Amino acid sequence: MRNVILNMSVSLDGYMEALDGDISWHLVDEEVHRQVNGFLAPAGAFLCGRRNYVMMDGFWPTADQDPDSPEPMREFAAIWRDTPKVVYSRTLDRVGRNATLVRDVVPEEVRALKERPGGPLFVGGASLAASFLRHGLIDEFHLYVHPVILGRGHRLFPELEARTDLTLADTRVFSNGVVLLHHRRA
C-alpha cells in the first residue's frame, strides 16, 4: 500500500506562509532542493489543493526552459510535469495536462488510490492537508523547518478534535539552518 506523505516547509512557529502569501523566507538552496528532488522523484502522484496547484502549475511546467535556472530547478520542473496530479477544488473548472480534478476529499476514494500500485502520494497545501489530517489519511510528515519566526500567517496545522501521535523516523540538518523532520503515524 502506498503512503500519503505531507511534504511542506514551515516556519519555526508553525506557519507555511505569511499573511500575504509570501514564501520568500523559504531557504531552498541547492542542498535542500536536491534532497527534495530525490525524495519527490518516485512520487506516484501529487495531491494538491487549489491554491497550491495554481501556484505550482503557474511556474514549474516551464521552469526548465530558462537557461539560467539552476540544475535542481530544471530537475524539479521535469518531476512536476511528469508526475500525475490530483487537484482538489470546488472552484476550478479544469486543470492542466497530467492532472485530474476532484471536488471533495472522500476518504474511501483516497484509500482506494493508496491501494493502487505506484509510488507514494504527496499532499501539498495547508487546507488540503488539514482535511486529510481530519480524516486520518496522512501516514507520514516530512517537514522542512526554516530558521525564521513569522509571528503570524497561515498555519500549517489546524485545530483538531483529537491528537495525532507520531514516531520520529529521521532528521537532517542542512548547512543553511533548515531542519528536516520526518515523522510517521504511531
Rank of each mutant, 00 (worst) to 15 (best):
V4S: 00
L6F: 04
M8N: 14
V10N: 08
S11Y: 02
D13L: 01
A18C: 10
A18I: 04
L19N: 12
G21N: 09
I23C: 08
V28A: 15
E31P: 11
V32M: 00
Q35I: 10
V36E: 07
V36Y: 01
V36W: 03
N37Y: 02
G38P: 05
A41R: 13
F46R: 12
R50W: 02
M55K: 07
G58Y: 06
F59I: 07
T62E: 12
D66L: 01
D66Q: 00
S69K: 04
P70D: 07
E71T: 08
P72H: 08
M73D: 11
A77N: 02
R81T: 14
R97I: 04
A99S: 15
A99G: 11
D104Q: 14
D104M: 09
A112H: 07
L113D: 03
K114Y: 09
R116W: 06
R116D: 15
P120F: 05
P120W: 05
A129Y: 00
A130M: 00
L133V: 09
L137A: 14
Y144S: 07
L150P: 11
L150W: 10
H154Q: 15
H154K: 15
D165C: 09
L168E: 12
T171M: 04
F174S: 10
N176F: 13
V178I: 05
V179W: 02
R184P: 06
